[in-house]
Measured scan of single mutants.
Amino acid sequence: TTIHVGDLTLKYDNPKKAYEIAKKLAKKYNLTVTIKNGKITVT
């Protein structure tokens, strides 16, 4: 599972963990989490 945050690309083997991290990042920086085709993007 890949999380895209701006220019950063973070890879995680565990999709659930990746989603949790994405949610935390989104909350911290007041951003939105988008999931599309298995890719998690924080914008």
Score class of each variant (00 low, 15 high):
residue 1 T to E: 05
residue 1 T to D: 06
residue 1 T to M: 13
residue 1 T to A: 12
residue 2 T to M: 09
residue 2 T to C: 12
residue 2 T to H: 08
residue 2 T to D: 06
residue 2 T to R: 02
residue 4 H to P: 02
residue 4 H to W: 10
residue 4 H to T: 15
residue 4 H to G: 04
residue 5 V to L: 14
residue 5 V to F: 15
residue 5 V to A: 04
residue 6 G to K: 03
residue 6 G to L: 12
residue 6 G to W: 13
residue 6 G to R: 02
residue 7 D to I: 13
residue 7 D to Q: 14
residue 7 D to F: 13
residue 7 D to H: 14
residue 8 L to Y: 07
residue 8 L to R: 07
residue 8 L to G: 02
residue 8 L to M: 09
residue 8 L to K: 08
residue 9 T to L: 14
residue 9 T to K: 08
residue 9 T to D: 06
residue 9 T to S: 08
residue 9 T to Q: 12
residue 10 L to G: 03
residue 10 L to W: 06
residue 10 L to S: 04
residue 10 L to M: 06
residue 10 L to P: 02
residue 11 K to V: 15
residue 11 K to H: 15
residue 11 K to M: 13
residue 11 K to E: 12
residue 12 Y to K: 02
residue 12 Y to N: 03
residue 12 Y to D: 02
residue 12 Y to E: 03
residue 13 D to T: 08
residue 13 D to Q: 08
residue 13 D to H: 06
residue 13 D to S: 09
residue 13 D to F: 08
residue 14 N to D: 14
residue 15 P to A: 11
residue 15 P to R: 07
residue 15 P to Q: 09
residue 15 P to F: 15
residue 16 K to A: 13
residue 16 K to M: 11
residue 16 K to Q: 14
residue 17 K to D: 09
residue 17 K to M: 13
residue 17 K to R: 10
residue 17 K to V: 13
residue 18 A to P: 01
residue 18 A to Q: 02
residue 18 A to W: 08
residue 18 A to Y: 03
residue 19 Y to M: 15
residue 19 Y to W: 15
residue 19 Y to I: 13
residue 20 E to S: 10
residue 20 E to T: 08
residue 20 E to K: 12
residue 20 E to P: 00
residue 21 I to E: 08
residue 22 A to N: 00
residue 22 A to M: 07
residue 22 A to K: 00
residue 22 A to P: 00
residue 23 K to I: 14
residue 23 K to C: 10
residue 23 K to Q: 14
residue 23 K to R: 11
residue 24 K to E: 11
residue 24 K to N: 07
residue 25 L to W: 06
residue 25 L to S: 00
residue 25 L to P: 00
residue 25 L to F: 06
residue 25 L to Y: 04
residue 25 L to I: 15
residue 26 A to Q: 04
residue 26 A to E: 03
residue 26 A to W: 05
residue 27 K to S: 10
residue 27 K to G: 05
residue 27 K to D: 12
residue 27 K to L: 11
residue 27 K to H: 10
residue 27 K to W: 07
residue 29 Y to S: 01
residue 29 Y to H: 07
residue 29 Y to V: 01
residue 29 Y to M: 04
residue 30 N to I: 02
residue 30 N to M: 06
residue 30 N to G: 14
residue 30 N to P: 01
residue 31 L to R: 01
residue 31 L to G: 09
residue 31 L to C: 11
residue 31 L to W: 08
residue 31 L to Q: 02
residue 32 T to E: 07
residue 32 T to D: 04
residue 32 T to Y: 06
residue 32 T to S: 11
residue 32 T to L: 09
residue 33 V to R: 00
residue 33 V to M: 11
residue 33 V to I: 14
residue 34 T to F: 11
residue 34 T to H: 11
residue 34 T to C: 09
residue 34 T to N: 08
residue 34 T to R: 08
residue 34 T to I: 14
residue 34 T to M: 10
residue 35 I to C: 12
residue 35 I to M: 08
residue 35 I to H: 04
residue 36 K to W: 08
residue 36 K to Q: 14
residue 37 N to P: 11
residue 37 N to L: 08
residue 37 N to W: 09
residue 37 N to K: 07
residue 38 G to V: 02
residue 38 G to R: 01
residue 38 G to D: 09
residue 38 G to I: 03
residue 39 K to T: 15
residue 39 K to I: 15
residue 40 I to K: 00
residue 40 I to F: 05
residue 41 T to E: 10
residue 41 T to H: 14
residue 41 T to Y: 15
residue 42 V to P: 00
residue 42 V to I: 14
residue 42 V to Q: 01
residue 42 V to T: 02
residue 42 V to F: 13
residue 43 T to D: 06
residue 43 T to A: 13
residue 43 T to C: 07
residue 43 T to Y: 12
residue 43 T to P: 01
residue 43 T to G: 14
residue 43 T to V: 11
residue 43 T to R: 09
